[in-house]
Write a protein that binds this DNA or RNA. Structure first.
Length: 265
DNA sequence: ATGGTGGGTACCCCA
C-alpha cells in the first residue's frame, strides 16, 4: 500500500485551516505534519481535520509561537514529544503507527538575521538545536528501522536549494556553519533525502518564498527549508515526491508550501 | 545599503 506523507509550515493553522482543508481534499496524504501552528491545543481546529478524514491528531502547541501537529488517517501507536535545548518550546512531535513506522516532525529555530552566535542568541539557539539533533541521530538504530523525519528545518543545505548560493552564504539558513551541522544530522543516521532522491542536486528547488518580495513568483528568490528524510530501510520503497509551488500563490498563503513524499511502507 | 510583508498579541514579539 502506498503511503503519502506531507509537511507544511502553515504559519497559523487557525487562519489557514481553509487552505489545509483544500490541500487535504486535493492531495489526500495519509499523514500531514504541520509547523508554526501558533495556537494553544484548546484552540486547535481539530474538528475540521476530523471532518476531512483525519481522525487521529497529535498536537504540541503553545501560545503565539511555534507549535507542531500531526494529522493522520491511520491510528497512532505512540505519541511522544521531546524538549530541545531545554526551552520548553513546541518544536517536535514523534508518532509511531501499528506497523512501527516512526514519524518525527520538527520545527527548527529560524535563527534571526545575524549569523553570529556571539551577538545573536537566536542563532546560538539554532546551532545548539542542530547539535542536539546530530547527537540524537547518534543513538544506535537498528538497520531495519523504518523512520521518516520531516519538518521546517530552516536550513537550505545545497547550492541549488537557494536562488543564489554565493549571495546566501552570508544569510541565515545557508551559512556554512548551518549547512555543515545539518550535514552532521543527516549523516548521523544515514538519512536519505527523499526529495533529492528524485530531484537532481543540479536542479533548483524551493519550498519557501519570503512575504517581503514584491512578486515572489517572478523574482523566484526561494529557499528549500522544508525536508522529508527517510531511513535506508525505506529507500527502496520511495515512489515519488512533489513540492507544491502553486500553494504559494493561493489566497492569503503561508510563505512555505507543502512538500509530499509517497513510498511503499 | 536598506527595507520590504505577514503572523500572533497586546502596543512589540517573531518569521
Amino acid at each position: 500500500m502506498p503511503f503519502t506523507i506531507a509537511t507544511w509550515n502553515i504559519n497559523s493553522v487557525r487562519l489557514r485551516i481553509g487552505l489545509v482543508e483544500q490541500f487535504l481534499g486535493a492531495h489526500a496524504p495519509d499523514v500531514l505534519c504541520l509547523q508554526e501552528t501558533k495556537t494553544l491545543d484548546d484552540a486547535f481546529p481539530r474538528k475540521a481535520l476530523e471532518a476531512a478524514g483525519y481522525a487521529h491528531i497529535a498536537i504540541a502547541g503553545q501560545k503565539g509561537y511555534h507549535g507542531v501537529a500531526i494529522a493522520s488517517k491511520h491510528p497512532f501507536k505512540t505519541v511522544e514529544r521531546d524538549d530541545w535545548c531545554a526551552m520548553g518550546d513546541a518544536r517536535h512531535l514523534r508518532v509511531s503507527f501499528e506497523d512501527d513506522l516512526i514519524v518525527d516532525n520538527f520545527y527548527v529555530p529560524a535563527g534571526g538575521d545575524e549569523p553570529d552566535p556571539a551577538i545573536n542568541p537566536k542563532f546560538a539557539h539554532k546551532l545548539k538545536f542542530l547539535r542536539e539533533l546530530a547527537q540524537w541521530g547518534d543513538r544506535r538504530r537498528r538497520s531495519d528501522t523504518r523512520a521518516i523525519m520531516v519538518g521546517d528545518l530552516n536550513v537550505a543545505p545545497h547550492e541549488h536549494d537557494v536562488w543564489n548560493h554565493k549571495q546566501l552564504l552570508k544569510i541565515v539558513s545557508h551559512t556554512p556553519v548551518e549547512t555543515d551541522l545539518l550535514g552532521q544530522v543527516f549523516a548521523a543516521h544515514d538519512w536519505v533525502d527523499a526529495v533529492r532522491h528524485f530531484v537532481p542536486l543540479r536542479q533548483k528547488l524551493y519550498s519557501w518564498w519570503s512575504y517581503r518580495a514584491a512578486d515572489w513568483d517572478a523574482a523566484d528568490r526561494g529557499r528549500r527549508l522544508d525536508h522529508v528524510w527517510v531511513t535506508p530501510a525505506l529507500k527502496d520503497g520511495l515512489v515519488s515526491t512533489s513540492t507544491l509551488r502553486e500553494a504559494r500563490g493561493w489566497d492569503r498563503p503561508s510563505d512555505h508550501v507543502p512538500v509530499l513524499v509517497t513510498l511503499e511502507r
